[in-house]
């Protein structure tokens, strides 16, 4: 039975629960928008990284180069799209 619950995955799960609780602080505590957003950004991206590395085994074969390039490229363009859109649609007019 024990072998069905490897340490790495259990710790990953506990860690992701912890991150969720930390993120919840922005709801329960009163904080400025800057601190709140920073907290959310940090917890969300760590959370994503935990899933990627611990659960999704992104780096376990010789295709890891392709997989990571793909993910980084995707994240880069995703961020450009999100912030570029905000720049063109909202911030640019302020």
């Amino acid at each position: 039975m024990r072998e069905l619950f490897p340490m790495k995955q259990v710790m990953g799960f506990v860690f992701s629960l912890l991150l969720t609780i930390v993120a919840l602080a922005v709801y329960f505590l009163d904080m400025s928008i800057t601190i709140g957003m920073t907290l959310l950004l940090v917890t969300a991206f760590i959370q994503a990284a935990v899933q990627l590395v611990v659960f999704m085994h992104a780096g376990e074969t010789k295709d890891r180069g392709a997989i990571y390039t793909n993910i980084y490229y995707g994240i880069f363009i995703a961020l450009v799209t999100v912030f570029g859109t905000l720049l063109c649609m909202i911030w640019g007019y302020l």
Binding site: A23, L24, V26, T43, A44
Partner: peptide, 10 residues
């Protein structure tokens, strides 16, 4: 996780 953080919590 991203929906939870940036839609709901935010």
């Amino acid at each position: 996780i991203f929906i939870f953080s940036f839609v709901y919590l935010k």
